[in-house]
Write a protein that binds this DNA or RNA. Structure first.
Lengths: 142, 142
DNA sequence: TATTGTTATACTCTATAACTATA
DNA sequence: TATAGTTATAGAGTATAACAATA
């Protein structure tokens, strides 16, 4: 039983991967970066991880992105120049800078998010019941 | 009805996107590049698009990757140095070079593919029936 | 003349190392 | 002394422009 399960899981994931690594998603990712006015995908990912309610320190952003802290400096410079983000010194530790998403940044993030979360055309091939079933299953995954 | 359908599709896709853009997949993609001995993700994607039965021209590879033709030159140089790929002049047009995947290249591609298609741990949360259902639906998408 | 691929070159993205300020 | 962030610098990844060979 565990064996058939593993096989089904592999097949499911393989099919989904093909969709995500396909041309449509590749294009959409670049469209999203352009739509929110951000120069490169790295900056886009940084934006998507930011939440106005919970500002993150430069170092935390570096960990989110798995990149060097020095690169976060230039990334946040770019976002600040666009008015999407603000650096504020942390009240509890004056070495720490917290990256706050501005209202403009929030709007840009929403635009990018919309563009990315629009499902690819392949989903049109599913019946209504299948779509609902997929939504229910996917919800359990997060 | 079309409205509820769209909503369900958006929810499903959003949840799946979160998985794909999450840390586990990010790490796995780099692991796959390393496992197949390829220097950077661009070269990995080039490999994954190559099929020994249907060699592609340099220009086609550039279109697959949406990058400049000159970059394909250096990409294929790297892969050729690794023994994963061979350039052969096309019999029908001597300007064209066809990129053939070698047996070593095919093996490396398979290793990368295995690593990428291993489902993330989140799928453990699904029941056997849900996994099978997901596999059936995903198969319709490709 | 138009097209395929390469070379030479330059620009962008990202990391390493040395530095400043605060703890 | 150790840690957060920045600066200066160097390296990888990718594009643009000019070129050679073939069509």
């Amino acid at each position: 039983m565990t064996d058939g399960r593993r096989e089904a899981a592999g097949a499911a994931w393989g099919a989904l991967s093909a969709l995500f690594f396909g041309d449509e998603m590749h294009d959409r990712f670049h469209d999203a970066a352009e739509a929110c006015g951000v120069p490169h995908p790295g900056a886009l990912k940084a934006m998507l991880n930011l939440d106005p309610a919970e500002p993150r320190s430069m170092r935390m952003v570096a960990e989110d992105l798995r990149c060097d802290a020095s690169y976060v400096t230039s990334l946040v410079d770019d976002l600040e120049r666009l008015g999407y983000v603000e650096r504020r010194v942390s009240p509890s530790d004056r070495r720490v800078k917290l990256v706050h998403l501005t209202p403009e940044g929030e709007a840009a993030k929403a635009r990018a998010h919309d563009s990315l979360s629009t499902p690819p055309k392949a989903l049109d091939r599913l019946s209504d019941a299948e779509i609902r079933s997929l939504a229910r299953i996917a919800a359990k995954l997060t």
